[in-house]
Structure formats: C-alpha cells, structure tokens
Simulated scan of single mutants.
Amino acid sequence: MSKTNLRRLGLAAMTGAALALAGCATPFRADVARFQTQLPAPQGQSFAIEAANPALQGGIEFSQYASLVAGELTRYGYRPAAPGEKADLVVRMDYGIDKGRERVVSSPGFGDPWYGGYGFNRGFYRPMVIRGPNGRRYVHGWYDPWYWGGFGPGWGYNDVQSYTVYTSGLDLQIDRAADGHRLFEGHAQAQSRSNDLQQLVPNLVEAMFTGFPGNSGERVRITVAPPEKR
C-alpha cells in the first residue's frame, strides 16, 4: 500500500475516533475548599436554606438549587425545618458564573502521522492512540480534560483555535440560628466550556457535599462522573 493511501486510511480512522470521543460525556471537576468550627454531628437538627443574595430569595431557579442542597443535608442526617418551626441551622447559598474569557491555543503539529514524528508537548493533554495497519501505535489529537463540556483546542494540524472558558462557583455557609455563630463555609469552583447554570450548579452541589464536611482548611479537587456513569 502506498504512503498516500496509508495516510488517507490513518486520517479516516482518526476522524472516526474523534467523532466517537466527541459523543462521550466528560467528567466534571471542581476545586472545593471547606472550613468548619463546631459543626454539630448530624442528629436530626433542623435547617432552613436562604439565598445569600436577597434578589434570589423566592425565585424558582433558586428553589430548584436549594432543594438539591436540602437533599444532600438530609442524606447526611439533618432535616428541613417544618413550616412555622424555628430552624437550628441557617444555610446560606450563593452561586454564579462569570462572563467567560477567551483562550487561544495553537496546535503543535504532528507532521506525517504514519512515517514521521509528532510534536506532542503538552503533558496534561491526553493523546488518542490509533493502531495502524502495520501494527504500530500512533498518537493523534488531544483534548483538555480539565474543561468540562467539550474538547479543548480541537483536532487538526498546525492550526490556531480559540474558545471561551467560563468559571462558575458555589458558596455555602451554615450558621447556628440561636446566635448566628458561623459553623461551616464551603467554596466550590469549576472551569468549563459551558455557561449553563442548570447543568453546572447541580455538579457544584454534588462536589461540595462529596466527603462533607471535609477537613477544615483543605482544598481538594472533586471529580463528578457524568450522569450515565454515576
């Protein structure tokens, strides 16, 4: 088989593999920092959830996210305060996303994927490995595993591409209702290609409550699997 035909065969295989990978959901990663002091062990204490931003209080969207937090707290042994009941704990929640920033990436170039070398110089990118007709393994294409919501710089040869990266965040504070004493503070932040809060906030909530309440002062990276893999 000629070198030209081998190249065409290789590119066809790479294209098919790229499309297959593009259809796969990517995990969500968030950096979570949590601080606590005298947070009571869950023994059925009641809680009420409020919006840190008064403009969000009573909104349908806020209520949707608050129900996720309530579900997590209930799972850990706390309980929602009954109507008219004074809660033991007050939980304040805030969330948001920035306007995004552009990131420009230039692909390093791979040359001839069948007979030449490749300029793979970004260690945190994961290569796509393809086995050629002669049994050898070749590397082509890459994606950025840290930016949830799609591939990073894309696929191609010696091209320059730009895309928008958004930073989303979730803040959570728990106070003792009797005297307002702060018991817990949590901050979760993530970068993504998506700015859809309806997808991002549930992931941030799950990251916040993974290993809750955590070690005070510790910052950890939490990986949330796609829904179909949970």
Rank of each mutant, 00 (worst) to 15 (best):
T4Y: 14
N5D: 07
R7V: 05
R8H: 09
L11F: 15
A13V: 06
T15W: 12
C24Q: 12
R29M: 11
D31M: 11
R34V: 13
Q36S: 12
T37R: 15
P42D: 06
Q45M: 02
F47W: 08
A48Y: 03
I60E: 14
I60H: 11
E61M: 13
F62E: 01
Y65H: 07
G71I: 09
Y76N: 11
P80N: 13
A81C: 02
G84I: 06
E85D: 03
D88V: 03
D88S: 05
V90A: 12
V91I: 14
R92N: 05
M93W: 04
D94M: 06
G100V: 00
V105H: 10
V105W: 02
G109T: 10
F110I: 05
D112S: 10
Y118K: 06
G119F: 06
F120W: 12
R122L: 08
R126C: 01
R126V: 13
V129P: 00
Y138I: 00
G141H: 06
Y143C: 09
Y143A: 10
D144W: 05
P145V: 14
W146E: 12
G150Y: 06
G150L: 05
G152L: 01
P153K: 00
G156V: 05
G156Q: 04
Y157A: 10
V160A: 09
T164I: 00
T167S: 07
G169I: 01
Q173M: 10
D175K: 14
A177V: 03
A178M: 07
D179V: 01
R182L: 12
R182C: 02
L204C: 05
L204F: 04
A207G: 03
P213Q: 10
P213R: 04
E218A: 11
I222C: 05
A225K: 15
P226F: 07
R230N: 10
